[in-house]
Design a protein around this nucleic acid. Structure first.
Ligand SMILES: [Mn+2]
Ligand SMILES: [Mn+2]
Ligand SMILES: [Zn+2]
Ligand SMILES: [Zn+2]
Lengths: 141, 141
DNA sequence: TCTGTAAATGATACTGTGTATCAAGTGGAG
DNA sequence: CTCCACTTGATACACAGTATCATTTACAGA
């Protein structure tokens, strides 16, 4: 059924979690998304693939993936449902237009220096980060 | 009732919004919080000050303040209710422990250079940012 | 100071996201 | 193959946030 394990699936197993059908299906949906997806969309796509997977397991899996920094919930449009953002290499960065809610992605964040400084000074182990800018996009300026 | 207007209240008026009792009360509650507060806490404290203020107005005000980058909703503990974070000078930064949910604040982010670069390159006007690191705190490492 | 009006409000009823519970099922170590 | 802690799905539920709309109010302009 899932012959090939993605690197993230292997990460899951190495963190001591079982590779269940529900978890692998949610992971597949997230990896095939464009990187921004709401819980309602995840539920819908999971049900399309395997309608026997319960909604509780989907939410449980989203929480598990969040604690592993595989995804991060953030607010884009509504304050009801978060939008889950994939963190490909442990980080994600975007600009949200506070007028039209458009999201503009960007790549370079230059945060490796501050990451190292925080780890040394505060004795923490950082596994990821989210950097969000807010403002007006070129169409709303 | 509100003889002195805070700088943020003036910002509100200058953005073309009316300085209503509901909005000024929510602003007061947010400004007297330590910077992290859930919608449930805002509702409770607003009701203590003036129980005639409706819950819908509180949520409307939180959305308005978010669009003005006065606050920003983010996930700390639960995936049910966001925690609203004040953005004192347009930005906020913290570390969230993915194991115990402890939040560690820090000040310097060094993001003014990338802010200017993004504004120039993407033709956007940035009014604030949120930088969140995820990982394990010193007690959970 | 008074007035007119668009913006904002509060009450209400509602939607639907996310959760608690628990008996049944299953991944994977040995 | 066996076993069992972990995980699951079904169900019922809680409650955060919203749509609606009649009423009120901030404040610009006279
Ligand atoms: Mn980054
Ligand atoms: Mn900053
Ligand atoms: Zn825009
Ligand atoms: Zn911790």
């Amino acid at each position: 059924m899932f012959t090939e394990l993605s690197p993230r699936a292997i990460r899951l197993r190495e963190a001591g979690h079982k590779l269940t059908n529900a978890r692998l299906t949610v992971l597949k949906v997230l990896e095939e998304s464009d990187g921004h997806i709401t819980s309602a969309e995840v539920l819908e796509k999971v049900a399309q693939i395997d309608s026997s997977i319960g909604r509780a397991s989907v939410f449980r899996t989203l929480d598990l993936f969040t604690s592993l920094s595989i995804i991060r919930p953030t607010y884009i449009n509504s304050s009801v449902t978060p939008t889950y953002v994939m963190m490909p290499d442990g980080h994600h960065h975007h600009i949200v237009c506070t007028n039209c809610n458009r999201v503009i992605e960007f790549e370079n964040c230059g945060l490796s220096a501050i990451t190292a400084e925080l780890e040394a000074r505060l004795h923490v182990k950082l596994t990821g980060h989210l950097l969000e800018f807010y403002g007006l996009c070129d169409k709303c300026i």
